[in-house]
Write a protein that binds this DNA or RNA. Structure first.
Lengths: 154, 154
DNA sequence: TAAAATCTCGACCAATTTAGTCAAGTATTG
DNA sequence: CAATACTTGACTAAATTGGTCGAGATTTTA
């Protein structure tokens, strides 16, 4: 399981919005600069996140984006699912079982599918347990460490 | 994590070789027919599996393939790793940590990477625990069930 | 020894996906 | 109304995926 660039950017953007979460809105340009994401590409991604109900936007001169839900209510699995497509591939499993007679290639596929289903369950298990809030906390923590050593750049 | 077609075919082929494992060799054509895999494509895949040390081949008129190792010694994680590329993406983790001063986009990436690393660990955990032999047993089992009901095709 | 069967090697190809870019438009503020 | 920002949809280049193909090398068997 590798995250696409798009997926990584999406999480980075949400992470910024999570860090500064409040009633205020943040401009696309700021996110792009801070996270070093191509601006035009980020527009696309934020738009997608908007239609997915993760962020809301305000137009016009003092426009920007903010989270639509609180960071602690957004799990990584939701984000990844929305941006990379379904984590769980449609169960060939029950399909095949019902037919009850499998050609030998179907038998093999059925078995392989079963294992891959376990894999998916494991993936979701991890991603389900992590919220945007958790990620923000971790960032704050390592930024705190950097403070201590007055050896950071931002 | 979705398996590529190539990956699924590879496992199917190994599964066939595992089912009939012995000193004898099986022709590419038989595997292709039985598993409904494009023959030319399968050639490529088996070649790849050969260079990966999973199978060995015999040329000539009664040539074919057989497993190079015993089914119980081949884990799914090895197969997938070889055919789909590394499961574990090179650790940006330690890299970044050493630098000790992260730009804020690097901090975000670092954190995200950490979670993805957990995901990878979970994936490997599942795949590591399943051997080719296990898969063969499962196939035998559902084929046994089909026998019981004399309602199968092969 | 020649024919037939089978693996081997590398090039090639079309369709899809990924990672962006761009232009023109709409909305909001001052 | 001018400036600033989001919105929408089309467009593109490069990489990946899922194959195909031709020519060659090896081995068996008649």
């Amino acid at each position: 399981m590798k995250l696409s660039q798009r997926g990584e950017y999406a999480i980075q953007a949400l992470l910024v919005l999570g860090m500064y979460h409040g009633p205020e809105v943040i401009r696309i340009k700021e996110i792009a600069n801070q996270q070093n994401i191509p601006r035009r590409f980020l527009e696309q991604i934020l738009n997608d996140l908007k239609s997915g109900g993760f962020v809301e936007s305000r137009r016009g001169v003092s426009g920007g984006y903010r989270l639509e839900r609180r960071p602690e209510e957004i799990t990584l699995s939701e984000i990844v699912r929305h941006i990379e497509g379904p984590l769980e591939s449609s169960d060939l499993a029950k399909e095949s079982k019902k037919k009850l007679h499998l050609h030998s290639d179907e038998a093999a596929k059925y078995i392989i599918n079963g294992v891959m289903h376990e894999v998916q369950t494991a993936i979701v298990g991890v991603l389900e347990a992590v919220t945007l809030f958790d990620l923000c906390e971790k960032v704050r923590k390592i930024q705190g460490q950097m403070d201590d050593q007055s050896d950071y750049i931002i």
